[in-house]
Each structure stands twice: as C-alpha cells, then as structure tokens.
C-alpha cells in the first residue's frame, strides 16, 4: 500500500502542475467562444503551439504513465477518489501562481472534499 500511495501522490502532483501550466497557457489565448469547426481547429492549433500548454500536456503524460501503474495495483473506487488530493495542491498553486482569489465557500468545499478523501483512504483493504 505504501508503494501504491507514493506513486499515486507523484501522479497527482503531475496532474496538478499540468493543470496550472495548461490554464496559464489558455489564459494567454483567451476563452473559447466560437464553436464553429474552423475556429475550433484554429484554437486547438494555437493552443498546442503555446509553450505552457505544451509543457502542461507533457507533464500530464507523466501523470498517465504513473496512473497506469497505480491502476494495476489498486481498486478503482479507492484509487480514483485519492486524486482529490490534487484539489489542495491546485488551490494553493492557483492562488500562488495564477492570482486566483479563494473565497470562504470555495475553501469550505475543498475542506469537505478532503475529509471525504480521508474516509475513502481509510476504506482501503490490503490487496
């Protein structure tokens, strides 16, 4: 279980950092507003040439590989909720690196989610 948890934490950290990088890149691009195919393709093409989006995709690929290892060891209903650890990391990084304002309601929601994660973790039975 310790090895599973370590790889899982690594996977979650990759996911959080990937989201931060991608969001930063997309903030430079601006919100997607036009859903016509030609515009979608152009938006996607611009996105994949953005260095932050590109780095985000690379980091998320690392997340995918480590996640495959976790899935070979653990039950999905245990492994999946553990990804909620990402919320704590993302909230901190969003506030610190992207200037997001964290209001009390959002913080309370994250708190509830975290307790839920803890309970889910306690329900782990040795494989």
């Amino acid at each position: 279980m310790i090895a599973t948890t370590c790889i899982l934490v690594l996977s979650v950290a990759c996911s959080a950092y990937g989201n931060v990088l991608t969001r930063r890149g997309l903030t430079q691009l601006g919100p997607l507003e036009d859903f016509r195919l030609r515009h979608l393709l152009r938006y996607g093409w611009t996105a994949v040439r953005n260095k932050y989006v590109l780095r985000g995709v690379a980091v998320n690929f690392g997340q995918f590989l480590t996640w495959l290892i976790v899935l070979s060891w653990a039950e999905l209903s245990w492994a999946l909720p553990m990804n909620a650890l990402e919320y704590l990391i993302v909230t901190f990084l969003g506030w610190k690196l992207l200037g997001e304002r964290i209001e009390p309601r959002r913080l309370a929601g994250i708190g509830l989610v975290s307790v839920g994660v803890l309970l889910t973790m306690l329900s782990w039975k040795a494989r």
Binding site: S77, W78, P81, R105, G109, V115, G116, L119
Partner: peptide, 17 residues
C-alpha cells in the same frame, strides 16, 4: 459504508464549490 460516506462528503464539497 465508509467509502460511501467518503464519496458523499466529496459530492457535498463539490456542491459548495
């Protein structure tokens, strides 16, 4: 039941969020 409670708390947190 423990896992179910955990999942319920997670969903409540998401509703707040």
């Amino acid at each position: 039941p423990l896992r179910l409670a955990g999942i319920a708390l997670i969903c409540g947190g998401v509703a707040l969020l």
